[in-house]
């Protein structure tokens, strides 16, 4: 099992957002995490990534209980197993695209795989933008660049938070196609948190958050 959440308890302002929450995702089984605003999608992602600590429960990523680890231990699990794509925060602003990918590899693995960077940039159709700074890219290019940045470390779990919400129909479709194709090509498992209904038909596995209760669709 790639991701296992058991009996999760997490409070916001002392009110439970998750209580006795359970979830498991197998390797190579992509999931869509859906729910209305405020249902806790982003909070759940932050808990899985180790950016937040739960009150209770276990969150196992690739067999490691990230909830039980110290901050540096959580950094290590995130570095080694998880890639994250955000809606707008995509790349380090001072670096160009290729430097961003090199930095991501160095931070994650301590080594550089230039051929992987080249193949990813080609695969995502942004090889010609390798020397572009983030502010010089279009929305669609920047989101593809964020996918490249997340995949370049060869994560087992790729988490995307609202990756298409800021994109128009064409770009959203392109980005989703690329996300699905690339995660398959590079052996990652995709978990997308979104309220973008356009994505629903693309995912057979969905996790629906309603009143903080898990409903498997």
């Amino acid at each position: 099992m790639l991701l296992e959440i058991e009996n999760l308890q997490y409070n916001i302002n002392e009110k439970p957002l998750f209580s006795g929450f359970n979830l498991s995702i197998e390797e190579q089984k992509n999931h869509l995490l859906v729910g209305p605003s405020g249902s806790g999608k982003t909070t759940l992602i932050n808990l899985i990534c180790g950016l937040l600590s739960p009150e209770k429960g276990a969150i196992r990523v690739a067999g490691h209980d990230i909830a039980a680890l110290s901050e540096s231990g959580r950094d290590k699990i995130r570095r080694e197993h998880i890639g994250i794509v955000f809606q707008t925060l995509r790349l380090v602003s001072a670096l160009d695209l290729s430097a961003n990918l090199l930095l991501a590899q160095r931070l994650s693995r301590g080594t550089i795989d230039a051929s992987l960077i080249t193949s990813l940039l080609k695969r995502l159709g942004i090889a010609h933008r390798a020397k572009a700074k983030p502010h010089q890219m279009s929305q669609g290019e920047a989101q593809r660049a964020a996918i490249a940045r997340a995949l370049v470390t060869r994560p087992r779990l790729l988490i995307a938070d609202e990756p298409t919400s800021a994109l128009d129909e064409t770009n959203a479709r392109q980005v989703m196609d690329l996300l699905l194709e690339c995660t398959a090509d590079y052996g990652a498992t995709l978990l997308i948190a979104t309220h973008d209904d356009r994505l629903t038909p693309l995912f057979p596995n969905r996790i629906v958050l309603t009143d903080h209760m898990l409903k498997a669709a």
């Binding site: 950016l51 950094d75 995130r78 790349l91």
Partner: peptide
């Protein structure tokens, strides 16, 4: 101004010390 960048670096795996 760069708080987002710094947070992104942390998400990418950079330690606080780095």
């Amino acid at each position: 101004a760069r708080e987002g960048d710094l947070a992104l670096l942390r998400v990418m795996g950079a330690s606080k010390a780095q």
